[in-house]
Computed example of a mutant assay.
Amino acid sequence: MTVENAEATENVQATENDATPAFSADLDLERALEAILMVADEPMSVVTLATAVGAPVKRVKAAVDALVADFDGLGGEGTGSIRRGFELREVGGGWRIYVRAEYDTVVTDYVLAQNPTKLSQAALETLAVIAYKQPISRGAIASIRAVNVDSVVRTLLGRGLITEMFTDSETGAINYGTTDLLLSQLGVNSIDELPKISPLLADGTEGFDADVR
Score class of each variant (00 low, 15 high):
5 N>P: 02
5 N>D: 11
7 E>A: 06
8 A>V: 05
9 T>N: 13
10 E>S: 12
14 A>M: 07
14 A>D: 09
15 T>C: 07
19 A>K: 14
19 A>T: 14
20 T>Q: 15
22 A>I: 11
22 A>Q: 12
24 S>R: 13
26 D>I: 10
27 L>C: 12
28 D>L: 07
29 L>E: 06
29 L>C: 09
30 E>T: 15
31 R>L: 10
32 A>W: 02
32 A>H: 05
37 L>P: 02
41 D>L: 01
41 D>K: 00
43 P>H: 04
46 V>I: 10
48 T>W: 13
50 A>N: 12
58 K>S: 15
58 K>F: 10
58 K>V: 15
59 R>S: 07
63 A>E: 10
63 A>K: 04
64 V>L: 02
65 D>K: 11
66 A>I: 07
70 D>C: 09
71 F>H: 12
71 F>R: 15
74 L>E: 14
75 G>A: 04
75 G>L: 03
75 G>P: 04
75 G>I: 06
77 E>K: 05
78 G>M: 03
78 G>C: 02
80 G>E: 04
80 G>S: 01
81 S>L: 10
82 I>Q: 09
82 I>D: 06
83 R>P: 08
85 G>E: 09
86 F>L: 09
86 F>K: 14
87 E>A: 13
88 L>D: 08
90 E>M: 12
93 G>M: 10
94 G>V: 15
95 W>I: 14
95 W>A: 08
98 Y>H: 12
98 Y>F: 15
101 A>P: 10
102 E>L: 08
107 V>Y: 11
109 D>P: 05
109 D>W: 08
110 Y>D: 11
110 Y>N: 07
110 Y>G: 02
111 V>W: 03
114 Q>F: 13
114 Q>G: 07
116 P>Y: 03
119 L>V: 08
120 S>C: 07
121 Q>M: 07
124 L>R: 14
124 L>W: 05
125 E>W: 06
126 T>K: 00
126 T>C: 09
131 A>H: 09
134 Q>M: 03
140 A>C: 08
140 A>F: 07
143 S>A: 11
146 A>T: 15
147 V>S: 03
149 V>G: 11
153 V>Q: 10
154 R>E: 12
154 R>F: 03
155 T>P: 01
156 L>F: 04
160 G>S: 06
161 L>T: 03
161 L>M: 03
162 I>C: 02
162 I>R: 01
163 T>D: 07
163 T>K: 05
166 F>S: 12
168 D>M: 01
168 D>I: 03
175 N>W: 08
177 G>W: 01
180 D>W: 00
181 L>K: 00
183 L>C: 02
185 Q>G: 00
186 L>K: 02
186 L>G: 05
190 S>C: 06
190 S>P: 06
191 I>R: 04
191 I>E: 05
193 E>W: 06
195 P>H: 03
196 K>A: 15
200 L>Y: 09
201 L>M: 05
201 L>C: 01
204 G>P: 07
205 T>V: 12
206 E>K: 07
207 G>S: 05
207 G>I: 05
207 G>E: 09
210 A>D: 15
211 D>A: 04
211 D>I: 08
211 D>L: 03
211 D>M: 02
213 R>C: 08
213 R>F: 11
